[in-house]
Design a protein around this nucleic acid. Structure first.
Lengths: 208, 208
DNA sequence: GAGGCTAGTGACAGCCACTGACAATTGACA
DNA sequence: TGTCAATTGTCAGTGGCTGTCACTAGCCTC
């Protein structure tokens, strides 16, 4: 962020994200046109598309920042932790420090509202899920390297990450279904669901 | 499929699906316009949209039939089976009998080619994944009823299905990555990944 | 500090997915 | 056979997205 040019560019991009999220969370995603967003920031529609590959990308831009944050947390977990525990700690750390990451662009509250728009807008949810599978691939590679395994020869990293990813998406979905829950509720759900994975596989449900 | 009207309608729909899949698998999804498909069947573009809510839906139409087939198989599993085992048997049964389901509309080989187009086309993959989460919700309800549980009070059905779903999506992804594998390879991957879920969670990877 | 270079932008034209409205046609059924 | 309902084609329009081209503004060199 040195030159004036780069600063201006960053400011335009942030302004577009803010305007987009503000509009999406009030008028809805489909109810907002790209022209609306561009007009709110006073740039041309063409310029919007020079910053984002599509309307979706603008909607998911802040989310993407939190993903990078989470991946960083995973990479910095101590090597002695078991793989699943490393993932668990990294997500929890992610929720706990989400505030700082998000607030550099938009208020946390706007981010949470946008989260719900994503969950409730089919095309956004779809894009979010697709991105999640890409993240799973990255995660599998990180874990494989951690454990000194070849991710293409040993299926275990991918299987573990698949299980973890499945539970994370369940967490998001249920957090959304819960209504207007906050980050603390998200954290609690994460803990709760992850600790059920083991027991649930035994299958002796009728005799608790 | 009684009246002439219903038969004609079904024939038009099947023709659209066949034409769509044929074009998608040769020219690619993005490289095919709705007009192309409509023209191939000699109907207007407007008519296409009376049969499908969008280009995506036509691309996923055959897949949707296999989903219904799978859900039926789950519902008919004997009640004494443990939940995860019921899911496991139902998927395997699904792969084994896929042929009969698919061939009523398109050749199996075309379906498999289309499967690869879905996996490699971002917007289609996204739509497919979103549909998968809806299926998971249905599955959780089926399992809950099976076990006499309240799906909203007891998280276990959803957690189990989330794990299962995660592994299934991994299966699809790896099957695609394998290149030009057939249904038997898909079946083998399913078995292999599911039996690794238990061991993988213990986390003692470095001492096999 | 003048002039050239390049990134960023606006304006315009055009493609394609998708929708609403209306008129024409065709099968169903009394 | 005539009426009703379902199906279809045509047309017009919206919105996401892209290519092109000329213009401006920050950057860098001499």
């Amino acid at each position: 962020m040195e030159t004036l040019r780069e600063r201006k560019r960053q400011r335009t991009r942030d302004a577009l994200v803010r305007a987009a999220l503000e509009l999406f969370t009030t008028r809805g995603y489909e109810g907002t046109t790209v022209d609306d967003i561009a007009e709110a920031v006073d740039v041309s529609q063409r310029t919007f598309f020079r910053y984002f590959a599509g309307k979706e990308q603008a909607a998911l831009a802040v989310h993407e920042m939190t993903v990078e944050h989470f991946l960083g947390a995973v990479r910095e977990r101590p090597p002695h932790e078991a793989p699943m525990e490393a993932l668990r700690q990294a997500v929890l750390e992610g929720w706990d420090t989400l505030n700082e990451v998000v607030e550099s662009v938009v208020p946390l509250e706007l981010f949470l509202r946008m989260f719900r728009v994503i969950e409730s807008t089919p095309v956004l949810l779809a894009a979010h899920l697709r991105r999640s599978t890409e993240i799973e691939d990255t995660l599998a590679r990180i874990l494989a390297e951690r454990e000194g395994l070849d991710v293409d020869a040993d299926p275990r990293p991918r299987v573990l990450v698949a299980v973890f990813g499945g539970v994370m998406r369940l967490t998001e979905r249920q957090w959304y279904a819960d209504g207007d829950a906050g980050l603390d509720a998200m954290r609690a759900l994460t803990v709760s669901y992850l600790e059920q994975v083991g027991p649930v596989l035994t299958g002796a449900w009728r005799t608790p």
